[in-house]
Amino acid sequence: MLEKKMEESYEEMLFMYGISCAENLVNLGKITQDDYDKLMDYNQKKEVPPRDFVERVFATAVERIGDEKTPEAVERYFRERHNEIIDKREGSYDLMPDSLCELCKYSEGVIVAIDNNGFLPFPVYRVTGKTGNDFAFGMYFNGFKVGDKIAIHNKSAVRKIA
């Protein structure tokens, strides 16, 4: 069962899960560079963007998530449907190379080690999960510890789930 944090709103969850794919959205012309820069700015300032902004930037995800605008619905989409949509190459995934599609998938993993290697300004989390050993960048969200189970999207740590 996923840990529910009362303070995470629908828009915050959209932001947390979506931000790691933002560059793909720019490359495919789905959002502007200005939108991307604003997303990064919110992340750097540790602020949650307003709902209308995240819903516009992540419009495709919003459509797929459906009318239930709750943090649980966002979580459920990524956990249960995101990878299936990628495997079916729906929407823009049809334009992307297979490797990029695979990178974009959602996964979960338990942190077994943390690399603070010095040349990156954020940690790299070594994780183990259903797909074996993997890694996740703590580029957008970090502060996780060994033993934490985290959600991962596009090779980026999203949030602690257990």
Binding site: P97, E102, L103
Partner: peptide, 19 residues
């Protein structure tokens, strides 16, 4: 594909060129 100066994936040439 590079992320933060780390090569994280390889892409077949034909797919890379098309993308």
């Amino acid at each position: 594909i590079i992320s933060n100066k780390i090569i994280i994936s390889i892409i077949p040439k034909n797919q890379a060129i098309k993308y």
